[in-house]
Design a protein around this nucleic acid. Structure first.
Lengths: 339, 339
DNA sequence: TTGTATGCGTTATCAT
DNA sequence: ATGATAACGCATACAA
């Protein structure tokens, strides 16, 4: 691959490289005709500016990094799409990495992005996150980071959040309103704060309706379909069958539901189900899964906006937290039909 | 953010930058102790090399770009994971972009990646691809590109393929062996060659079993769940009901199956279904969808290997085509139980 | 309005 | 084994 440089253009036109450079950055004074001539010949010669050189000069990469824990479910891809909408528009490149729900990989990704001199990072932590020292140091050193969805509470940085407590509360209350009284909660990974928030919403909804929650109603599960399956089998084997299950996310709800179905339970007559973080899968299974819809794309857009604001006003910027609204999509998995 | 440079280290140690540089690229001769000293102080000072400067010198970005049409389904994410496994291992960064099944966006992505001076591109074309002139020019100019899955036949470049004909043939034959005789094929987008290959497999399987295929058995559909739904409604409304449907991909099969189910058809007794490109969704719907499993991760790995080989032997490299094997996963959506 | 010269942080090519 | 210096491609302060 042979690259044309401004030097080549300058030589061909018998002018200085400074003038050529000016033609492309139309801030400086330059005669319109020479500028047009340069632009014209540049196009003819197939000139493209070298981003490396430009970045080296300008001390910024115009690239931002995104770190997500996975992208096999549709949630994170959709967040990324949202972020890209804003970032591309503003002239930023996007480097996407995924940590496969692994803390070490996540950290490696962040370091790789740092090495790539990204101007900032948008990140949702893996479910195995151990501590946040590294991020706190990074932030203290002035590096722009926006967390979304899966954040650590201790960290003082910009965050795009979902009101997990509130929507877990609504989801649970919906089950209570449907008449269910023995509801289990499949809890996500302990290391994430959203896990706690969703659990609190579950508990609080019970409290509001003067129902008690015993410890065995809350079961540490995880986020995968397999986790849901495993726990469902354990529940059924234990002999104590709930009449409804509120899971911390859709895959675990789906896995559990499949096991209950397979082992002869009718849904929602015997056991009702509600998931969290609306997934495409939830809508197509039988019966369709009630779930809390998170505004994934908007989350990405807001995260990108906040990051850009931070990058462009590094000195004056104060960390912001934005809490987005959701929606409870009620489907057949949690609605008793009264004939 | 303040960055430490080799100049800073040199000044502090009262040595030349050349020596410092050597310490980090252990090819040149350098005394072990000075090297260790440099490495030690570099670490203390928090030095990180500036990739922009390095890339500017070396005329390569050590970055490769990936372009996929979408990543809401699990297929492309899995390909990307596979490609990353190889690329990270070899020290390459990965820039992921998605074209949203749009030809213009796809081209814009490629140009953005070019501007970012990626050393090569791994790409699967959008379903709206119009022509391949741009790619042909790029390849002719010596730019390394590997296509996978969705490729244009006219282009002479490296390709990672799936034997779409063969597996469509097997999938169709499976339905024929199950006794189905009036099988419809939901065809994908015309612009993709895999569409044609899968259709040919469908036709050829009929020919082998001395069955004729009428034109109305082959229905242009598209790749989305909505496409499948729309076409299914049209079929049912037309009154001519097939006894089996072989779809060009899983989402369209799933969409169609949902409509047939909803409108009172039993699956697979009234209508059987087989999809293509195994998706996570197919396994969890009711009944589970038979489908052709494509080795997504392996596809990504092979694409990455081929691209690296091409980048590292630019002059001698000849385009290669690798065809990967798959697997027909037979599930309840296409198996009649004989009691 | 244009040209000259310098620097961005590296690596590479000479010397020494 | 080390140092001085010239690139890499671009932007910019300063001179002309």
């Amino acid at each position: 691959m042979i690259y044309i440089t401004i030097k080549d253009i300058a030589k061909k036109l018998n002018i200085s490289i400074a003038t050529v450079s000016r033609a492309f950055n139309d801030k400086s004074d330059i005669k319109t005709e020479t500028k047009n001539l340069i632009l014209k010949t540049a196009k003819e010669m197939g000139y493209r500016s070298n981003p490396m050189a430009k970045k080296l000069m300008q001390k910024r990469s115009l690239t931002i990094g995104i770190v997500v824990p996975e992208f096999m479910n549709s949630f994170f891809p959709e967040v990324i799409i949202g972020a890209q909408e804003i970032l591309f528009e503003k002239g930023y490149q996007v480097l996407i990495t995924q940590s496969n729900e692994n803390y070490e990989t996540e950290l490696k990704n962040v370091k790789t992005l740092e090495d790539s001199m990204v101007d900032g990072i948008i990140i949702s932590q893996s479910s195995e996150t151990k501590n946040s020292i590294y991020y706190q140091n990074l932030i203290n050193s002035g590096f722009p980071i926006v967390f979304f969805n899966r954040v650590c509470n201790e960290i003082s940085s910009s965050k795009i959040l979902f009101n997990d407590f509130k929507w877990a509360f609504f989801a649970t209350e919906h089950l209570i309103n449907q008449g269910y009284r023995n509801i289990y909660h499949l809890k996500g990974k302990e290391s994430l704060s959203l896990t706690n928030d969703r659990m609190k919403g579950f508990v609080e909804a019970h409290a509001k309706h003067k129902l008690t929650v015993s410890k065995e109603q809350i079961i540490p599960t995880g986020f995968g379909i397999e986790d849901g399956k495993r726990v469902a089998n354990e529940i059924i084997d234990s002999g104590k069958i709930p009449d409804a299950i509120f899971a911390s996310n859709d895959p675990s709800a789906i896995g559990a539901m499949q096991v209950f179905k397979k082992r002869g339970f009718r849904i929602p007559e015997d056991v009702a189900f509600v998931g969290f973080t609306e997934s495409k899968m939830g809508a197509i299974i039988d019966p369709p899964l009630s779930s809390v819809l998170q505004p994934a794309r908007e989350m990405g857009r807001e995260a990108a906006k906040l990051l850009i604001a931070q990058i462009e006003n590094l000195t004056t910027f104060k960390p912001q937290t934005i809490v987005l609204n959701g929606q409870l999509n009620i489907r057949e998995s949690s609605v008793l039909e009264h004939h």
